[in-house]
Write a protein that binds this DNA or RNA. Structure first.
Lengths: 238, 238
DNA sequence: CCCAATGTGCCACTCGGGGGCAAAAACTTC
DNA sequence: GAAGTTTTTGCCCCCGAGTGGCACATTGGG
């Protein structure tokens, strides 16, 4: 019976038009559909039976593509499970490159992050919830997610280092700033997922139920309070 | 001709008695020898031909153990290459559990780290240098190393959380503190390795030459200045 | 000296990931 | 709308990391 479910997944996804894909060429539309189908089927299968219990062969069979094709869309099995997070990091980076660097740089990073979270669409929210649910009980995925945040740090530091006066501000400070900013994210995300440990992270749950349990507003609240706690933490005395 | 070299490595290692292993039972001595032989041969082979170019089969052939045995000593190929780092984290954790928590907690973590670095023996320094050399041009190892620092963070936060007043200090602060402390390490280590990018990281180089190029004193200096820059970084304005 | 415990070797196996090449689909041009 | 060109895909091969089972050897204790 998982077979029927998978076929259902595929059809549903292929009929779903998340955005307008009329103006873009057919090739792009099909690629997008395949990518979304892979991502969606992966979340369903992983949540249903566990990340480790599902082999790539099963996944590609469900979406009816070859394993070779899978690796043209995602670099690893972990990547398809955490695609939503990667999209957030890309959006975050975009905000940073577009933001004017005035005043406290840490505040700028903070604002960019929250606006990036707010800027993602509802479809993203659903997938992100599922991804965090997977991460919560799959060490392998947790590693991958943490690593992605570290690499995002590097990109932030590079971007900042290029824009700030190269000589005036030492590289160490920029690097540390990126580290601290991501530290806040990791702490906030961890706290957020702990608060909602008992939620189902069910992809098929109606939207309202999700809104009642774990929401993006909660996440943003956690980010805000975590950034606010940074100063006190660094100066903690007992 | 790599075969001869490997045999040489094995014999050399097996004859080397790093510490006194007379008092401990024969089984323990043999296990220790095997572990050290694996670690040493791995560093030599990886530095010589590159981490990816060396297969586990080659490594275990060189040390004359089975692949099965290898995995009874190290959980992964990456782990044997970064064994020196893991030892540092264990020593670091030991210092933290033994240190009294008075005054600035960040200062305590800072001191524990530097004394831990100082407390490692000369044999460790040689292996650590080699490990960092490998990490510098092997993304896979860099990931593994960064991940190890993140997991150490978790252990620190758990330890600190257990000892600090559970109710008075919020969990977020402890978590952030551990994050910030490790951020300083990562930044210092990265800077240190960049400064010595042109060093050979040669295991066979005489000790004096190593002291001239990349030394533990340099590393500790970097740690100190990075910790000192923390406050300025977090408050950076432009 | 024998017996129990522990460590080791060998075997075969799974699974993630990548390369080469030929077929097919999609865009282009006439 | 039929040619040719380019991009995308499918299929088959391969490799290497990591695991499990079982028989064997080595060590330590009575």
């Amino acid at each position: 019976m998982p077979c029927d479910a998978n076929v259902d997944i595929v059809r549903t996804v292929h009929e779903t038009n998340t955005d307008d894909d009329r103006p873009m060429p057919l090739r792009e539309r099909k690629k997008r559909r395949t990518r979304e189908a892979l991502g969606e089927a992966a979340l369903h299968l992983f949540l249903d039976r566990g990340f480790d219990a599902v082999t790539l062969d099963e996944l590609v069979d469900a979406v009816e593509v070859s394993k070779r094709t899978f690796f043209r869309y995602f670099p690893s099995k972990e990547a398809v499970a955490t695609a939503a997070e990667h999209e957030l990091w890309d959006a975050y980076l975009d905000r940073i490159t577009g933001a004017p660097l005035t005043g406290s740089v840490l505040d700028v990073l903070h604002t960019c992050l929250t606006t990036a979270v707010r800027g993602m669409d509802g479809e993203w929210e659903r997938r992100f919830l599922a991804t965090r649910g997977l991460i919560a009980h799959t060490p392998q995925l947790r590693d991958h997610s943490d690593l992605a945040s570290l690499r995002t740090q590097d990109r932030i530091a590079d971007e900042l280092g290029g824009r700030l006066g190269d000589d005036t501000t030492p590289d160490v400070q920029v690097r540390l700033l990126a580290e601290v900013a991501m530290a806040a994210w990791r702490t906030a995300a961890r706290r957020w997922v702990r608060e909602h440990r008992h939620t189902a992270f069910d992809l098929t749950a109606p939207r309202e139920q999700q809104r009642d349990s774990a929401t993006r507003a909660d996440l943003i609240d956690n980010i805000d309070t975590t950034y606010a706690a940074l100063g006190d933490s660094i100066a903690l005395r007992i």
